[in-house]
């Protein structure tokens, strides 16, 4: 996020004179880009809402009021409420470990943390079936103890945790690496314990990156389809998440499927909005910081040109002697 924010900053500052394309080339390029984006971004988005309301608002709200859809909404929320905090705690621990310490095997650990990103969602679901399914390693033991994981909520949570595993860590690690350990060391020299340093110094300074990671993690957790589809068992009203509910309704009532999908699309739009807001916030902060330091260093220089050789630092020590006296 920080790099995105920084580059935004560059753009506003730089002049483009001398390396510009002719106006018609720009027009063609912009037109082609807008055409591509319109076809691949705007059209699918518009279609979701158009189809959702294709049978009127009444049908739309009736579709959302369906008890099975309601239960899918609450299951989706429950899964996210469990999965996101788990990965948040992990992300913070992993980022602390990787950003603050140097140890053997760090590169390997980083790669392993990224691993779930490169595993197909269907395979992500499958591995839990292999472990907890009836024919899986723990299947018999679980059945004997009457514990259901696969085709039940715990399986859905596990699969969701797997696919959203790296999100927070990935956002925090580069951020904490860029910040270094100076602030933490300063806190230690002032007598702070490890936990005090973490809560009062580290956490506040990565707050926005953390929120950013949580938003992305949450979006994926609420919208995951493939992995959840494998472990859910598709029991209507019990183990259907919103995504699964959309799939099921698609074969029964397309307008209702789109109505349900519109809830998820809305979630995506909110996610995008928050993400953009956070990035701009970051850029604005950077800009403010730059502007402020410019102004203040000017002010400092004007202090040094005071008559009688008096300087800002000297006036400080004048204050100091008065305080001491």
């Amino acid at each position: 996020m920080a790099s995105a924010a920084k580059s935004r900053l560059n753009r506003t500052v730089r002049s483009q004179r001398g390396t510009e394309e002719s106006p018609w080339v720009r027009a063609v390029l912009i037109g082609a880009a807008l055409g591509f984006a319109g076809l691949f971004l705007l059209l699918p988005l518009a279609n979701v809402f158009a189809q959702a309301f294709s049978k009127g608002a009444a049908h739309y709200f009736k579709a959302l009021a369906n008890p099975d859809t309601r239960s899918a909404i609450s299951l989706t929320l429950v899964v996210a409420i469990i999965a996101v905090p788990l990965n948040l705690v992990f992300g913070v621990a992993a980022a602390w470990l990787i950003a603050k310490f140097d140890f053997k095997g760090k590169a390997l650990l980083l790669t392993l943390i990224d691993l779930p990103f490169s595993v197909s969602p269907v395979v992500s679901g499958l591995i839990y079936v292999v472990l907890f399914g009836l024919q899986g390693y723990l299947g018999e033991w679980l059945q004997d103890h009457d514990i259901k994981i696969i085709f039940a909520v715990p399986g859905i949570v596990l699969a969701t945790v797997f696919v959203t595993f790296p999100f927070v860590a990935r956002e925090l690690i580069p951020l904490m690496q860029a910040q270094g350990s100076d602030q933490e060391e300063a806190a230690l020299t002032l007598g702070a314990s490890g936990w005090q340093t973490f809560w009062k110094v580290t956490l506040p300074s990565v707050k926005w990156g953390l929120i950013y990671g949580v938003i992305l993690c949450n979006a994926r957790a609420m919208g995951e389809f493939g992995a959840v589809s494998v472990v859910s068992g598709h029991i209507t009203g019990l183990t259907d998440t919103l995504s699964l509910r959309v799939e099921k309704l698609y074969n029964e009532d397309v307008a209702a499927a789109f109505a349900t999908a519109s809830v998820l699309a809305l979630l995506a739009l909110i996610t995008l909005g928050l993400k953009t807001w956070l990035e701009h916030r970051q850029a604005a902060e950077l800009l403010r910081a730059q502007a402020a330091s410019l102004i203040d260093s000017d002010a400092d220089n004007s202090h040094t040109i005071r008559p009688a050789g008096s300087t800002s630092a000297e006036s400080d020590s004048a204050t100091a002697s008065r305080a001491a006296a």
């Binding site: 602030q183 300063a186 020299t189 702070a192 506040p204 300074s205 707050k207």
Partner: peptide, 29 residues
């Protein structure tokens, strides 16, 4: 430990707590 040595340390890049105001920085210890 560093916490118990009762030293004051000024870092090269100052390492000010950037989420805290000047007052909060000074009163931290």
């Amino acid at each position: 430990s560093v916490q118990e040595r009762n030293i004051g340390f000024v870092f090269q890049g100052y390492a000010l707590f950037k989420t805290m105001s000047v007052r909060q920085n000074i009163e931290f210890g």
